[in-house]
Computed example of a mutant assay.
Amino acid sequence: MSVTSVELVELAPRDGLQNEDAVLTTEAKVELVERAVRAGTKRIEVTSFVDPRRVPQLADADELMSALPRYDDVRYAGLVMNQRGLERALAGGVDEIDILVVATDTLCQRNQGMTTAEACATAAGLVAEAKAAGVFTTITVGASFGCPFEGEVPTPRLGEVLRQVVASGPDELALADTVGVAVPTEITERAALARKVAGPELPLRLHLHDTRNTAAANAMAALTAGITTLDTSIGGAGGCASAPAGTRNLATEDLLYLLDRMGWSTTLDLQETIANAAWLEKQLARSLPSSLLRAGPFP
């Protein structure tokens, strides 16, 4: 196989921390980001600009953005869900914003307090304003493969949501397996649907949870389908706070080991990433689900 590059977007500082019992200090979050950068990460979702009462783990988003060191080749992203969040993100100097639209009304209502249609309309306004400010925009479609409340998400439903978000003109479209229910055949099918709706030019991205131990297989299916930008989290930390059993992100180091052994190239160093997982485990005072953290690399 010819060597192909894979881009890993690091989500530990945001998705990795938002559902943890431990609340890291701003200083510890800065160190987490700096560790990810030293390991070679180029895109990092550093925080979420949401109501701090709902996500107290990320209540210091504004302070964090002021404290983070800047690097010419590293882009910081922030999750936003409304106008106030966008204003805070832009004031903080983010390089990217990630906007969430959940494909099912029930989870969207629980997560964002609005229907999917309302979230699509909100996303369109946020994309327009962010692009006017020169900021890269990603729309992530949550529950693209299944919902903890409504069950299976029919393909026509997903297709309609994708059409609405693509029409708003984001710079990138992401599919999210929010509760970790997808299997490789579904990744293949829905990646094809996303490409059909998005057209040949719009970059695609995939966000995987490892709730049912399928994330690595799903990542391989995504690569085969041509999606080479994947979300990961150091140590496998994190999960969806508003979705029952939405646990375990795909561990950065676990996927990195698989990619390295298969001849895919990334910008990351495996040993440093494993060390970062060990550091984060100590900060959170709990065991993280990373396999490489237990077994180590080979040979």
Rank of each mutant, 00 (worst) to 15 (best):
M1F: 13
V3P: 03
V3M: 13
V6I: 15
P13T: 04
R14A: 10
D15F: 10
Q18V: 06
N19R: 09
E20I: 01
V23S: 05
E27A: 15
K29C: 08
A36H: 12
K42N: 08
R43K: 11
E45V: 15
T47M: 05
F49N: 02
F49E: 01
R53A: 14
R54Q: 13
P56L: 02
E63F: 09
R70A: 00
G78D: 02
L79C: 13
L79S: 14
M81F: 10
A89Q: 10
A91K: 01
G93E: 01
Q109I: 00
R110W: 01
T116A: 11
A121P: 01
G134F: 12
V135Y: 12
I139L: 02
A143N: 12
F145Q: 03
F149W: 10
P154K: 04
L162A: 12
P170H: 12
D171R: 09
L173K: 09
A176Q: 07
V179D: 03
T185K: 14
R190Y: 11
A192G: 12
A198C: 06
P200Y: 11
P200R: 13
E201C: 00
T211F: 04
N213Y: 07
N218L: 07
L223F: 03
L223C: 02
I227S: 10
T228C: 04
T229D: 02
T232E: 06
T232Y: 05
A237H: 07
G238S: 06
S242P: 00
T247F: 12
T252I: 01
L256M: 09
L256F: 11
L256C: 07
M262R: 14
G263V: 05
L268M: 15
Q271A: 15
A278C: 08
L284F: 09
A285C: 11
A285N: 15
P289I: 05
P289Q: 05
P299Q: 14
